[in-house]
């Protein structure tokens, strides 16, 4: 398909572009909420990537404005108790949240996928042992597990990512295992085996492409969960150390006590946090709807 695009005449390319726009519009019409979620996430990602360009002020610099200035033209989201620009802090805080959320889920889902594939494909003793370990980890609530892990690791963004990745691994392993079990009895797996393909080749070339849908769904929902977990840990003061901006910390430590007199300090990070999680949840829902053949084409 790639070569077809590369060698296509210019007219074909233009036709392709138009058809892409048309297809996007059609998709937007069929999945309005999913499209909105996609746009929302793209905007949030863009603001995180280009944070230094968007945010006018240094998020950690104090006295860039008078303390407790309300939202206005100079400081869109106002300033906090030490005169830091809340908008800059929210934008940079998003950078932390999205980085932690996405990187930890990438690690967690990758490890989970590998474990789930091995467990589901080989079955037997390996499966039993791995599943009991997953049972064991999953019996500890995510927040408690995260707390216990953080208590041994020193605080810091990389430790936070590691902790959340560990917390996210078992559930993706379990879902991937289920998906592998569903795919394994298919004829094409048998055929590959009959042709003499090795286990590695079967897993990567034949099974993985067919279980990508559930992996994408769990991944995107987990990014939302990971961001919530990061915010919760920051709320408890176990997130990235201050003065680095972090949404959870801004809500609890900076905004909470002055919520009646300077509500903008705690409200804006909360709104952004909610929107981000909402976006990823909706994205997961949409991916499920679009990729699940059982739901595809169903009316309503």
């Amino acid at each position: 398909m790639n070569t077809a695009v590369a060698t296509a005449p210019i007219a074909g390319a233009r036709y392709k572009a138009i058809s892409l726009v048309r297809r996007s519009l059609r998709f937007a019409k069929r999945e309005p909420i999913g499209t909105a979620a996609g746009i929302l996430i793209v905007l949030l990602l863009a603001s995180a990537i280009f944070a230094p360009l968007i945010a006018e002020f240094d998020p950690t610099k104090t006295r860039v404005g008078r303390p407790f200035t309300g939202p206005g033209w100079d400081h869109w989201f106002g300033t906090d108790q030490v005169g830091r620009d809340v908008f800059s802090r929210v934008v940079h805080g998003g950078r932390v949240s999205l980085t932690v959320g996405i990187v930890s889920v990438l690690i967690g889902t990758t490890v989970g996928t590998i474990i789930g594939m091995l467990s589901g494909y080989f079955g037997g003793f390996v499966d039993i042992v791995l599943q009991r370990i997953i049972d064991a980890i999953m019996s500890i609530p995510t927040m408690v597990l995260a707390l216990a892990l953080i208590s041994i690791l020193e605080p810091g963004t990389d430790k936070l990512i590691l902790t959340i990745a560990v917390v996210m691994t078992p559930s993706s392993a379990r879902i991937v295992r289920g998906a592998v079990l569903a795919v394994k009895p298919n004829m094409y797996v048998e055929a590959a085996k009959a042709l003499g393909a090795g286990s590695g080749r079967i897993l990567i070339r034949h099974i993985l492409p067919n279980i990508i849908a559930p992996i994408l769904v769990i991944g995107s929902v987990q990014v939302g969960n990971a961001i919530l977990l990061e915010a919760s840990l920051s709320f408890l003061g176990l997130g990235p150390p201050p003065p680095n901006p972090s949404w959870g910390y801004m809500i609890s430590q900076e905004g909470r006590d002055v919520l009646t007199t300077a509500p903008w300090i705690g409200v804006f990070p909360g709104v952004f946090l909610s929107l981000t999680v909402f976006g990823f949840n909706m994205l997961g829902d949409t991916i499920r709807d679009v990729l699940d053949p059982k739901l595809r084409g169903r009316i309503g």
Partner: peptide, 8 residues
């Protein structure tokens, strides 16, 4: 309800 953090 799923997206808005309870602590907020």
């Amino acid at each position: 309800g799923l997206s808005v953090p309870s602590f907020w």
